[in-house]
């Protein structure tokens, strides 16, 4: 306990960096997922092909490979050198965004066909149909998987320590080197990762419940038990890594 208390400020700094990378990466992933996911539901085959290429390519490559490519290869062919943090956000956002796009596309397509037919009967424009009818219903279905994806992104953010960003993993590595206390150094970091994950899970569950309430669906059970329920694995779009 003493070990952890004395070095708490250092770990907190690391946790802040981890959180920053997670939040920025998630934001990028979210925007990409929404745009590419919606494009994937269009009738235009060219637009759909672009969406497919993006999702297949960035789901297929490991985030770590992307990261090294941005950090080490890009400076070689362009005059730009990306800051390590930016390279991390970019690699994580592009990778997880590809998974998210699949989630968005599947969720929109899963809205019952009758809903689309109703909007056609009401002569709604495509934009209004998407914004007012399809997305609000798909949203409730996307959120649980988004929650899983954010946890995965947060865990994957540990790779930025490999390009010298001072995140939680990096702090733990340094602590181990300076103190030689392997168990305490890494154990403290893992406990903090665990805490961040629980925080994110609770946050996502709150969003889920709000989305369901807005659709007039009663929350499954509510209360603390529901917040702590285990995740839904193996959703039909697959879980991200």
């Amino acid at each position: 306990m003493d070990f952890f208390l004395n070095r708490f400020p250092a770990y907190l700094d690391g946790a802040l960096i981890t959180l920053t990378v997670t939040v920025l990466g998630s934001a990028l992933a979210f925007v990409l997922a929404m745009v590419v996911g919606i494009v994937g539901t269009l009738r235009n085959p060219a637009a759909r092909a672009v969406a497919t290429v993006y999702t297949e390519a960035f789901r297929g490559v490991a985030a770590l490979v992307l990261l090294f490519w941005f950090a080490y290869a890009v400076p070689q062919i362009t005059p730009y050198e990306l800051s390590p943090m930016f390279a991390g956000v970019l690699a994580l956002g592009l990778n997880v965004g590809a998974y998210g796009a699949e989630v968005v596309r599947a969720a929109i397509n899963a809205v019952p066909r009758a809903q689309t037919e109703a909007t056609i009967a009401l002569n709604m424009s495509w934009g209004r149909r998407m914004w007012l009818v399809l997305l609000p219903q798909a949203w409730a279905q996307m959120l649980p998987t988004f929650g899983n994806l954010i946890i995965e992104l947060m865990k994957a953010s540990a790779i930025v320590s490999l390009i010298n960003v001072a995140d939680l993993t990096d702090v733990a590595g340094n602590m181990r080197q300076t103190t030689g206390e392997t168990v305490l150094a890494y154990g403290s970091a893992m406990v903090m990762y665990f805490a961040i994950a629980q925080l994110l899970i609770v946050g996502m569950r709150t969003l889920e419940r709000r989305a369901n309430r807005r659709l007039g669906r009663a929350p499954a059970r509510g209360g603390l038990r529901d917040l702590l329920r285990p995740p839904t694995p193996g959703t039909k779009v697959g879980t991200a890594k």
């Binding site: 865990k155 320590s161 392997t182 168990v183 990762y193």
Partner: peptide, 11 residues
Amino acid sequence: RTTPVLVQLLF
């Protein structure tokens, strides 16, 4: 499940 596999590997 909720902690990074990279940290587990290093540990």
